[in-house]
Amino acid sequence: MRKLSDELLIESYFKATEMNLNRDFIELIENEIKRRSLGHIISV
């Protein structure tokens, strides 16, 4: 996760939620978004 750019991480989050991927996977992405202080972009 740390090698993904912020932009790609956010894009991955939206794609994963759109495709209804595994909730655990989405939570991993959400946690990384929060760690990077980007939660305001997706309202996490």
Rank of each mutant, 00 (worst) to 15 (best):
Glu7Pro: 06
Gly39Lys: 06
Leu38Asn: 02
Ile42Ser: 04
Leu8Ile: 10
Arg23Asp: 07
Ser43Met: 13
Leu9Cys: 02
Val44Asp: 12
Lys3Phe: 14
Lys34Arg: 13
Arg36Ala: 01
Leu8Phe: 07
Asn22Gly: 11
Asn31Trp: 09
Val44Cys: 06
Leu4Tyr: 10
Ile29Val: 06
Ser12Arg: 08
Asn20Thr: 06
Arg36Phe: 02
Glu7Ile: 10
His40Leu: 07
Glu11Ala: 14
Leu28Gly: 04
Lys34Asn: 10
Leu21Phe: 11
Leu4Asn: 02
Asn31Cys: 06
Asn31Val: 09
Glu27Cys: 07
Asn31Glu: 13
Ile41Val: 11
Ile10Val: 08
Glu27Tyr: 08
Thr17Ser: 10
Leu38Gly: 02
Leu21Ala: 14
Tyr13Phe: 08
Ile41Tyr: 12
Leu8Arg: 12
Lys34Gln: 10
Asn22Thr: 10
Ser5Leu: 04
Asn22Val: 06
Asp24Pro: 07
Arg36Trp: 02
Met1Ser: 02
Ser43Pro: 10
Glu18Ile: 10
Thr17Ile: 15
Leu8Asp: 15
Ile10Asn: 01
Glu11Tyr: 11
Ser43Leu: 13
Leu28Asp: 05
Ile33Val: 05
Leu38His: 02
Ile42Ala: 05
Leu4Trp: 15
Leu4Cys: 04
Ala16Val: 04
Glu30Phe: 13
Ser12Glu: 12
Ser5Met: 04
Leu21Ser: 11
Phe14Arg: 10
Arg36Cys: 00
Ile10Trp: 05
Asn31Gly: 07
Met1Trp: 15
Glu18Ser: 11
Lys15Leu: 12
Leu28His: 05
Ile42Glu: 03
Glu30Asp: 03
Ala16Lys: 03
Glu18His: 08
Arg23Cys: 06
Ser43Cys: 07
Ser43His: 13
Glu11His: 10
Leu38Val: 02
Ile26Arg: 04
His40Met: 07
Ile33Arg: 00
Ala16Thr: 03
Arg36Gly: 01
Asp24Trp: 09
Asp6His: 04
Tyr13Pro: 00
Lys15Ala: 10
His40Val: 08
Asn20Tyr: 06
Ala16His: 05
Ile29Leu: 15
Ile33Tyr: 01
Glu27Lys: 12
Arg2Leu: 15
Arg36Ile: 01
Ser12Phe: 15
Leu4His: 03
Ile33Ser: 00
Met1Gly: 03
Ser5Gly: 04
Met1Tyr: 13
Glu7Gln: 13
Ile42His: 04
Arg2Met: 15
Glu11Ile: 11
Leu28Thr: 07
Arg36Ser: 00
Lys3Trp: 14
Leu8Glu: 15
Arg23His: 11
Leu4Ile: 06
Ile10Lys: 03
Asn20Trp: 05
Gly39Asn: 09
Lys3Leu: 15
Leu21Val: 11
Arg36Asp: 00
Ile10Phe: 05
Glu11Pro: 02
Asn31Ala: 14
Phe14Trp: 13
His40Ile: 07
Asn31His: 11
Lys15Gly: 05
Ile42Phe: 05
Ile41Phe: 13
Glu7Asn: 09
His40Thr: 06
Ser43Gly: 14
Gly39Ser: 13
Arg2Glu: 15
Thr17Lys: 15
Phe14Val: 08
Gly39Ala: 11
Glu32Asn: 01
Ile29Tyr: 09
Glu32Arg: 00
Ile29Cys: 04
Leu9Phe: 03
Ser5Tyr: 04
Ile42Trp: 03
Leu4Ala: 04
Arg35Ser: 05
Met19Thr: 06
Leu28Ile: 12
Met19Ala: 12
Ala16Leu: 05
Gly39Leu: 12
Ile29Asn: 00
Tyr13Gln: 00
Ser43Glu: 13
Glu18Ala: 14
Ser12Leu: 15
Glu27Arg: 10
Arg36Leu: 02
Ile42Gln: 04
Leu4Phe: 09
Asn20Gln: 13
Asp6Thr: 09
Phe25His: 08
Tyr13His: 02
Ser43Trp: 10
Met1Glu: 03
Leu38Glu: 02
Asp6Leu: 05
Leu4Pro: 01
Lys15Asn: 11
Ser43Gln: 14
Asn31Phe: 11
Val44Lys: 11
Lys34Met: 12
Lys15Glu: 06
Ile10Ala: 03
Asp24Thr: 09
Arg36Lys: 01
Ile33Leu: 14
Ile26Thr: 03
Phe25Asp: 06
Glu27Asp: 10
Asp6Asn: 12
Lys34His: 12
Ile29Thr: 01
Lys3Arg: 09
Ser12Asp: 03
Asn20Gly: 14
Ser37Glu: 12
Ile41Met: 14
Ile41Cys: 09
Ser37Met: 12
Ile33Ala: 02
Leu28Asn: 05
Met19Pro: 02
Asn20Glu: 08
Gly39Val: 10
Arg35Phe: 07
Ile33Trp: 01
Leu21Asp: 07
Glu11Leu: 13
Ile29Lys: 00
Asn22Trp: 05
Leu38Pro: 01
Thr17Leu: 14
Ile29Phe: 10
Ser12Pro: 00
Tyr13Ala: 01
Glu18Asn: 08
Ile26Asp: 01
Glu11Trp: 10
Asp24Tyr: 05
Tyr13Lys: 01
Asn20Ile: 05
Arg36Gln: 01
Phe25Arg: 05
Asn31Arg: 11
Glu7Val: 09
Arg36Val: 01
Ser12Ala: 15
Asn20His: 11
Glu11Asp: 10
Arg35Gln: 05
Thr17Pro: 03
Lys34Ser: 06
Asp6Trp: 05
Ser12Gln: 13
Arg2Phe: 14
Tyr13Val: 01
Asp24Lys: 06
Leu4Glu: 02
Ile42Lys: 03
Tyr13Arg: 01
Ile41Leu: 14
Asn20Val: 06
Ile41Glu: 06
Ser5Trp: 04
Lys15Ser: 08
Val44Phe: 12
Ser12Ile: 15
Thr17Trp: 14
Ile26Met: 06
Met1His: 05
Ile29Trp: 04
Leu28Ala: 11
Arg35Val: 04
Ile10His: 02
Phe25Asn: 04
Ile42Arg: 02
Arg2Lys: 15
Arg2Cys: 08
His40Asn: 08
Ile26His: 02
Val44Pro: 13
Asp6Glu: 04
Leu28Pro: 03
Arg36Tyr: 01
Ser37Thr: 07
Arg2Tyr: 15
Leu21Tyr: 11
Ile29Glu: 00
Glu18Lys: 08
Arg35Lys: 05
Phe14Ala: 05
Leu38Tyr: 03
Leu9Gly: 01
Glu32Ala: 01
Met1Asp: 03
Asp24Cys: 09
Glu7Gly: 07
Met1Ala: 04
Phe14Gln: 06
Phe14Gly: 03
Ser37Pro: 02
Leu21Lys: 08
Thr17Asp: 04
